[in-house]
Amino acid sequence: MISIIFSRTILVFSLYLFFCFSALADTTFIGTVKTVQGKVTIQENTIEFDAKLNDKIYEGYVIETEKNGNIGLVFIDGTQLSIGPSSQVIINRYLFSPKEKSYAFDVMLNNGSAIYTSGKLGALSPESIKVQTPEATIGVRGTKFLVEVD
């Protein structure tokens, strides 16, 4: 009996937590646009829009900057990816779930330039990180680097 009451209490408490933070129920976003300058477009399937400050980033986004465009992304683990002018970046895969110990970071720079700065993902699971270009793949350990494709 006591255990039933106890588990009900836990259930009610969990529901309470859930409703308190239902504004945060959007758990699929993986990062945000923290800085942006000039024209930067984001494509997802058939949708295309101009990137704005505080836009949420999702897996599968294709980010393209024009000649005057630059953008700075912060992922939920603290990884930063800044993208320079005339670039195309595809966010292939991103997973940061320390509860389940599942991690992935796979982005492709097809053209242009980018600076990667590692976050928690780099500390907890460096082997999950992959930055790709048409010519090579970059693996990291607690690092900041510049990659150029031209």
Partner: peptide, 14 residues
């Protein structure tokens, strides 16, 4: 295209 990768200075060690 050609890829060039530069390791940048950072406060993290190693």
């Amino acid at each position: 295209t050609t890829t060039k990768v530069t390791l940048l200075p950072d406060e993290k060690e190693n």
